[in-house]
Amino acid sequence: MTRPRHWRAPERHPDHGADPVDRVSPFNVANGLTALRILLVPLFAYLLLADPGDDGARRWWAAAVFVIAIATDWVDGDLARRRHLVTNLGKIGDPIADKALVGAAFIGLSVLGELWWWVTIVVLGRELGITALRFVVIRHGVIPASSGGKLKTVLQSLALVLLLAPLGPAVQLVGHVVMGAAVVVTVVTGVDYLLQALRLGRQRDGAPR
């Protein structure tokens, strides 16, 4: 069949639905900072426990390493969101790094007799329990982080920094007050998360299949 002289073949638009999904490489800056935070945990624990006193050079270094490590938590999360570097490895590694760092600080201070063991048990019990609960309810859905959870993280970090830094009895007292507030928020947000998880499970179980 003869085509008209000005005939042009129709343009073929690419089928983007068939394109492979872009994957973010796990070897990125955000995950690198998370790995650095994990590597700093044993160094921090050594510096904290190696000095029998609370005002030696190693105690200052322990406080400095903790501040650097906790800062990487804020930086890597911001980088991952702004530069679209969120990966499955980061989702798993980031909370592990956080729990390891905070756990080392709580346990270390309790071993040194500078923080009541019941505080450490309550806080770490809540953190580990909620982490386990996340894996249980993930098949039903994801519960987003609340403002209370973020406040809990800020209060815990601030309290630990004040207790780690050898800045004298007055600062230590402020640190214990902030830690008291952190414990209250930690327990309240833990109960709230548990209730949300229960409601989510009931809703999904009652949904028609």
Rank of each mutant, 00 (worst) to 15 (best):
156 Q>D: 07
80 A>F: 13
110 S>F: 01
6 H>L: 13
172 Q>F: 14
148 G>H: 07
118 W>Q: 03
163 L>M: 11
66 F>Q: 03
165 A>L: 15
15 D>L: 09
114 E>N: 11
150 K>A: 10
142 V>P: 03
193 Y>E: 03
44 F>H: 06
51 D>V: 10
23 R>K: 13
167 L>M: 14
53 G>Q: 12
76 D>R: 07
198 L>E: 03
145 A>F: 02
97 A>D: 04
168 G>Y: 11
121 I>E: 01
202 R>H: 10
3 R>V: 13
206 G>D: 15
70 I>T: 14
150 K>R: 14
121 I>M: 06
34 T>C: 10
141 G>S: 05
183 V>G: 01
72 T>Q: 07
107 I>W: 04
143 I>S: 02
206 G>Y: 00
153 T>R: 01
70 I>E: 05
77 G>A: 10
202 R>T: 01
168 G>V: 11
100 A>D: 01
183 V>M: 04
52 P>K: 13
86 V>T: 14
4 P>W: 04
126 R>S: 08
137 V>T: 06
117 W>L: 15
177 V>R: 02
6 H>Y: 03
58 R>M: 15
147 S>H: 12
164 L>C: 07
197 A>E: 04
176 H>E: 12
182 A>H: 05
26 P>K: 02
32 G>D: 04
73 D>F: 06
151 L>R: 01
129 G>L: 03
47 L>F: 13
158 L>C: 14
79 L>H: 04
1 M>T: 02
56 G>F: 11
82 R>Q: 12
160 L>W: 08
151 L>E: 07
203 Q>R: 15
53 G>K: 09
51 D>F: 11
13 H>N: 08
54 D>M: 13
54 D>H: 14
178 V>P: 04
113 G>T: 07
157 S>I: 12
141 G>F: 02
97 A>S: 13
175 G>K: 03
166 P>M: 04
162 L>D: 05
50 A>R: 12
151 L>M: 15
71 A>W: 05
91 K>C: 10
166 P>K: 04
87 T>M: 07
168 G>L: 03
79 L>W: 06
77 G>E: 07
40 L>E: 09
10 P>M: 07
118 W>N: 02
23 R>A: 15
160 L>T: 11
198 L>C: 00
79 L>M: 11
114 E>Y: 02
23 R>T: 15
86 V>W: 01
179 M>W: 11
200 L>H: 00
108 G>D: 06
95 P>S: 12
205 D>Q: 12
43 L>K: 02
79 L>C: 05
156 Q>W: 08
64 A>E: 03
116 W>R: 13
128 L>R: 00
22 D>N: 00
72 T>C: 06
2 T>S: 10
36 L>Y: 00
146 S>M: 06
115 L>G: 08
69 A>F: 01
36 L>P: 01
69 A>W: 03
109 L>K: 07
193 Y>V: 07
171 V>G: 04
67 V>L: 14
194 L>K: 00
74 W>C: 07
42 P>T: 11
144 P>D: 06
171 V>A: 08
128 L>C: 07
183 V>W: 05
201 G>Y: 01
